[in-house]
Design a protein around this nucleic acid. Structure first.
Lengths: 208, 208, 208, 208
DNA sequence: AATGAATGAGGCTTCATTCAT
DNA sequence: CATGAATGAAGCCTCATTCAT
């Protein structure tokens, strides 16, 4: 009757989601079989169904977990002293925690799937909207962004920043051979310059 | 037996690819069945196998065709008088031809699939590299880009531009409800400002 | 383009239904697997799904076919010169055509399934109602039934007759060991007396 | 540890059988899962296996209990002053105890299952034989049945009576919508007339 | 005695692919 | 060239049963 009776299931869910993440990233949502997932998790197929209603539910749950991770990340980003540091926190996150381009493949698959599954589309839209609003607020509150170039609004700046980030994430998928860290580093060099361009127009010249 | 039959296979292939594009966009590569495609094309299932070895071959062929379309587009872009006009041509292309976000779903699926299928990854990488090099050249040759902000190289500028474009394409997927034309217009307003920021640093102030 | 292109599928359907009847009678609707049916029919599992949407559809189709058989039977019964002969035709039918108690098990299963599947219940109710109305009419038109005992209406007489018939059908299920023909004969001796009792009250005495 | 625990298994068994009866009637033997039964009984799945070897054993036990109930019923029927009253007791029994057509569905399922499960067939045959013999004896001893019409023997009369009863029970299954009590009443009106016809041939005319 | 997590075989169904016509 | 009937492997999911706690 203590909450240790509830926790195991939480762990099981997490364990299954971890396995599913690996399988989905490796083969895609629909190519990964429930058997693949169970094998990856080291459990039987049937057990998955004690914790998830069906395959779609696993996908949704993973999107849900993704949402929470994004939420936490946003919280951490909010506590950075400057806007640029916040952005740095936000956009270096996914290269560290899990495998590097596993996340990329997963996210792209998530969007692909969302284009056909309205329920999932809502979830992803919700995640994105939360994150976007968070960054929009960060920008609006930041002194660096008071004189944004081209009269871009905080929201537009956020859209731009997210678009670049998503776009680079898609790019990752094609760069399987190179060293992921180095690749990320190169990407960061570019986006950092964009951020500076957007938020510190005066510091642009040669000594960048 | 007339010479109009010399290359019916070209038309058939195109017809099948058109149908496949619709099906793939609607349901995804693996969710779309060969029967779906044959029905959409108004032919029998078996006939598809006269023109394509198997399902994967259809996907590859579609990527191939995509490559040619991109190639043509690049050619057209190259003939624009200014860099900004070239970019405009490049990034307004996909909203016209077919349905608006059909293309988006297809491209995202293409990347998702590429993350597991090395052959496809090569193809997509090849497409991207060609387009990217084309734009890099455009930038390098363009007088507007001689004093790029933040010391960004032409290649880096191209990467940035493509990333934004891909990122917005992913965004499209989530915006199923709104008017596609209006959505595109809003996106264009933002990217145009970015381009101006990148290539006309002097024209940034309030009177933009 | 001739109707020979339609017929094969009719045959296939019949072939599958024949196999299904055997399997269902042997193991019951839910215990008979689609594989059992395909094996009995000598075809592959997948082929069943070209002719039936799913398992339930096979059951419905069988009920449908049963309905048609009953219909034909009723037609034949209508042409008999006397009421008693009509009844004889009606209630000796199922022991002849196919295997003897296969039919019994199937019908009992059909009712059992109907108790949970409203769609099927409607179908069976429809079959029963048609048959019942047919017999009610036969009785109403028959001179023998003008002075029915106990003031039983034609409809009530029909209900009674059908009830006995169904009840004996259930009984069949338990009598697997004995000779089916002999069993039927014994049943017939009893029901014939009932019929005479109902329709020829005067002829009851010792010389029956 | 008190002596009230000496036979908790009897109660448990009854509790499980009650739950099983509800589930079996609602979904059928094979469609009702052990989990359904445990949920209906408010216990865990595993516990069922403490009291029954397996699912088939539950079915057998239920048939066994059914047998005892029939036995008791027969005892009560035997004590009625007249044959017709005995019959009335026998054939109004199942409409009272539990839900009305729950019993019907269960019995029909029982026969359906018996057609494939010889052990169960024996059990059901045994039940039926006991009841049938009981009624045969009642008839043989009854003064009303000394001059049975059509020279029907007591055994044949019993068969007829049971057949009608079983047949009406099957009919019940299709009549889910109407008021059960009213339906039973209508059925009784018909069978009562049959009984009178069989046992009081003289009282048949208009003043019935 | 009681629980319910865990197993894994097996059922229904789909679908890429083949091939006789 | 074209059809679509046919195959059978494979996927999702359920469920009777077991067993550690």
């Amino acid at each position: 009757m203590s909450n240790t009776q509830i926790e195991p299931s939480v762990d099981r869910r997490a364990q299954i989601l971890d396995a599913a993440m690996i399988c989905f990233a490796k083969r895609g949502f629909h190519q990964a079989s429930m058997h693949d997932i169970s094998a990856e998790a080291g459990i039987s197929v049937g057990l998955i169904y004690r914790y998830f209603e069906n395959k779609e539910d696993v996908i949704s749950a993973m999107a849900d977990r993704h949402k929470k991770q994004i939420h936490d990340l946003l919280e951490r980003a909010r506590q950075a002293p400057t806007l640029l540091e916040s952005l740095e926190i936000l956009f270096t996150a996914h290269c560290c925690e899990n495998a590097p381009q596993i996340q990329s493949a997963f996210v792209v698959d998530l969007y692909a799937e969302a284009s056909r599954n309205p329920r999932l589309a809502n979830l992803v839209r919700d995640i994105l909207e939360t994150a976007m609003q968070g960054v929009t607020d960060l920008i609006a509150r930041s002194p660096e962004a008071q004189h944004a170039p081209q009269n871009l609004t905080p929201r537009q700046l956020a859209e731009l920043i997210f678009a670049v980030s998503r776009g680079m994430l898609m790019r990752d998928i094609l760069e399987t051979e190179r060293d992921p860290t180095e690749r990320r580093e190169r990407q960061l060099r570019v986006v950092r310059r964009l951020w500076r361009l957007l938020f510190k127009p005066e510091t642009e010249p040669a000594y960048a």
